[in-house]
Design a binder for these strands. Structure first.
Lengths: 342, 342
DNA sequence: TCTATCGTGGGTAACGTTTCACCAAGCAGG
DNA sequence: CCTGCTTGGTGAAACGTTACCCACGATAGA
């Protein structure tokens, strides 16, 4: 219809309108040193009057882009939404804008997404549960401030935020033992890569399960189905466990979605929960809290993890050479209706 | 540790290494006209050897950023994840990178996010279920190619993709009537804004409900609880409906999450589903499909909607002045275990 | 043979911001 | 009155890419 073709208003326009130099405007924009209160006011007025907005592209060429990239492996996992909430809450009043890259399941897609974020000269990256090789992560972190969430182990290049998965697994086992269970099985995410084995949360949970079982003198009862952290994986894993000679009286699923799949398989087998068999999950997602499901689960406080990650990242952007930090948060157990005394 | 401080490799480095001009390299990068196959090969080799990656910031200053911004009002709504899948699937093999802006509930946050995307000179925007005023959307669309998903009505500036919510509501009512229900209630999202009333899907669904009831000669049975499209809203709405003098035999919730809340309230009231009362939702989210819930729901095929939105957007980026298009998709009803004959 | 035309390729000025080096003025101390 | 220091401010050079325009040689048409 109308063709205004109004040229974008730039820093030069603002400078002219406020009768100062572009440098002065830039200083005001960045809250940089060397601008008197009087000039600040003058410039801010001009900015408001002209409706000026700085171009992130131009900024990126010289300075910062005020953009933080967050990589999520999976949008459907509600736990990740909690982490994101924590990140945005922490960053809410800062100048940073959070942008998300979706759909990065698999090492190749992950590499693509990370490259895309670096190409866009983002100021910092938060990688949630990345699957890339550690060397790759270090390399990335050397070129841009990075915080890794949900991966154990320390790095000289990036900060990390994790949940104490070892402790979380122990919480579940302790709880079930207290209820009188001995034959407690576990459904884990199958992991082949040697290096990742020590760093991925799923491996830590399985390890914590073994440790706790042993601590209770139940090493003979250890029983693991190795599938994947998906609903289908839980379904399959539970089927396997139920088919074994000695049926478990409780199943500790490595994630809530896994527990859901397990619940389906158990119901199909004509067994009741928690009458015949107790089930516990991990993540305390909204699904677990939902009334009809009411799943006993380990709560990781995703918001807290996200907030910590954001805080660490902003710190690092401000001070790139400080030592890396590792934040480890303690999980809690939320007991609901899928676990009961034997 | 090591301090390589390796300067980023630029188009100039590539040009020098391949013994051509920067213009030539740029042409190859953009698949532009005026480069012989021989030169293409030479340049591509140099790019590979040097591991060159173009800077999106610099590109944005002159040309495109190859970035598409997607605004989602809510990450936890699984239906939106389907839309996103459709978008990424459609864009998978193109040069475009999709970036998501999270947490934009409310008009103010939405404005902030849209501005942020424009500041970053994104090539195109996909706005999913935006709540901003129509004038604002038109203004945005004039400054950057835009596709709006899930908002009825036509615009001269942006393309739109919607589900036929009128038809979807009718599907539910028809289904319930066929099962013998007459007293069919509806839980809607309370809408005050006059203009949005006609454009928002929730309003269309409520309208479709009224239309369909009238078509069946049931205008006297029309019964609406006006809360919000959240689980709490569904809980509250169902409580209200159950407290009325004549209890409904079926509840059509405007969204799956609403239906979940309603299910909770119904269970609390000591009633069974579908024994005493039938419940239907809208969106056919993963939650609805989940075995223990097994909610009858209207399926919108989010993937299809996303794919269409992406296709329209890429079209428009290529040809900014073409007429706007409106794609309307037909929903289907997925009957599960929460609806039964009276 | 003398022009048009075409296919390749290069030179260079933007794009909008930040940063660097510098300058003028004011001020205290000698 | 000179010197050195601080404070507030400026001009101009980057940053890495693309778009515009021109040059060159070869080929085709007159």
């Amino acid at each position: 219809m109308d063709k205004p073709a109004t040229r974008r208003v730039t820093i030069v326009d603002v400078a002219r309108h406020a009768q100062v130099s572009t440098t002065a405007v830039s200083k005001v924009l960045r809250n940089a040193y060397g601008a008197s209160p009087a000039m600040r006011a003058k410039v801010q007025l001009a900015i408001a009057e002209l409706g000026y907005r700085p171009s992130a592209a131009a900024r990126g060429l010289r300075g910062q882009t005020y953009t933080i990239g967050v990589m999520l492996p999976e949008l459907r996992n509600l736990f990740f939404a909690d982490i994101l909430d924590g990140i945005t809450a922490q960053l809410g009043d800062s100048d940073y804008q959070v942008l998300l890259a979706p759909g990065c399941n698999g090492e190749k897609a992950e590499a693509r997404v990370i490259d895309a974020m670096i190409d866009r000269s983002m100021d910092g990256l938060i990688l949630i549960a990345p699957v890339s090789a550690k060397s790759r992560l270090n390399e990335v972190a050397r070129s841009v401030p990075t915080v890794v969430v949900g991966r154990h182990g320390t790095s000289p290049a990036y900060d990390s935020v994790t949940d104490d998965d070892l402790a979380g697994a122990a919480l579940v086992v302790d709880h079930l033992v207290e209820l009188g269970h001995r034959r407690i099985a576990h459904i884990e995410h199958h992991e082949t890569d040697r290096v990742r084995l020590a760093e991925m949360p799923n491996a830590q949970r399985a390890h914590g399960y073994r440790q706790a079982m042993t601590a209770h003198g139940l090493e003979a009862e250890i029983d693991i189905a190795s599938t994947s952290y998906t609903q289908a994986g839980g379904y399959l894993g539970a089927q396997q466990l139920l088919a074994r000679p000695v049926r478990p009286t409780a199943i500790f699923a490595g994630a809530d979605v896994v527990a859901l799949g397990a619940l389906e398989a158990i119901a199909e087998a004509g067994l009741s929960v928690p009458g015949n068999i107790s089930v516990a999950g991990y993540d305390n997602s909204a699904l677990a809290a939902f009334g009809p499901i009411s799943l006993t689960s380990v709560d990781q406080d995703g918001r807290q993890m996200g907030a910590n990650a954001a805080r660490l990242l902003v710190d690092r952007i401000g001070q790139r050479d400080r030592r890396t930090a590792q934040v480890k948060l303690s999980p809690t157990l939320v007991v609901r209706r899928t676990t009961a005394a034997i």
